[in-house]
Write a protein that binds this DNA or RNA. Structure first.
Lengths: 131, 131
DNA sequence: ATTTCAATTTAGAATAAGTATAAATCTATT
DNA sequence: AATAGATTTATACTTATTCTAAATTGAAAT
């Protein structure tokens, strides 16, 4: 179950996501593949992204936009989106366990985890706005 | 700016969302309108949902599924989704201010708010599973 | 009551993101 | 070299939503 078969296309997709400074969408990945001289079928990119996600090599992010984004950091963390420029950054501060426990009590659910999208204004947009 | 023009169709859409026990999608709203004898254009339902959202009469929820859901509770709260049956419930326990502050410090963002989707197993599915 | 004008609704086309399918191609093993 | 299984490709399809242009409605002014 832990066998990972990295074909040429999967490797190339993984490389794009791994070396990305941002959190690319499937379309972003497509474009960057072309920039690097590849030309894979649209479906292959989606298949690869799903495969890599299934194998926990990357993570799929659903941040409330129309398109999913992908992230090579697979450790537990959250995200923050800039309302002005759309920039996405990582949030490493963990949600307090006590909050999770309280939610479990309130709802009667067995809580497995939480996806958080924080919204705000990034440092750059903040300083631009002051002017 | 605070004028609210509730046409017949907007009123009907609002009624569906307001009286819903769940968190209906646009398609759900469509179906329930038909059940109640209405037949509005598809676009009108979307327009109405957006209008009501803009006027803060309802809230649009993006819970990571393909379709948005709508909620007549507009006070600040979060949601929890059952991984087994897909049921969605409200989470009223607020995220601690201290967490928000820490995120602001960590990221350099001016934090405005957060959308949280908790995942877990609802009480019903928990007890079913035990058998 | 009639005209007028903006807002709204309608039907249907268009778009965007992603999935499904069937044939072709690779790859590892006999 | 032959076979089988997995993968890729090209393309069609689906789903959710937005856009568009014409038709309708409704309120205000005549």
């Amino acid at each position: 179950m832990k066998t990972i078969n990295l074909t040429t296309q999967r490797q190339a997709v993984y490389d794009i996501v791994r070396t990305a400074e941002d959190h690319p969408t499937a379309a972003d990945v497509m474009n960057r593949l072309v920039e690097r001289g590849h030309s894979f079928a649209y479906g292959t990119v989606y298949n690869s992204l799903r495969y890599l996600t299934d194998k926990d090599l990357i993570r799929e992010l659903k941040l409330g936009e129309t398109a999913s984004r992908y992230d090579a950091r697979t450790d537990d963390h959250q995200h923050i989106v800039c309302e002005v420029c759309g920039r996405v950054d990582e949030v490493m501060t963990a949600i307090p366990e006590s909050w999770m426990t309280q939610v479990a009590e309130e709802t009667g659910y067995e809580v497995a985890g939480a996806h958080i999208v924080v919204e705000g204004v990034c440092a750059e947009c903040k300083s631009k706005r002051k002017k």
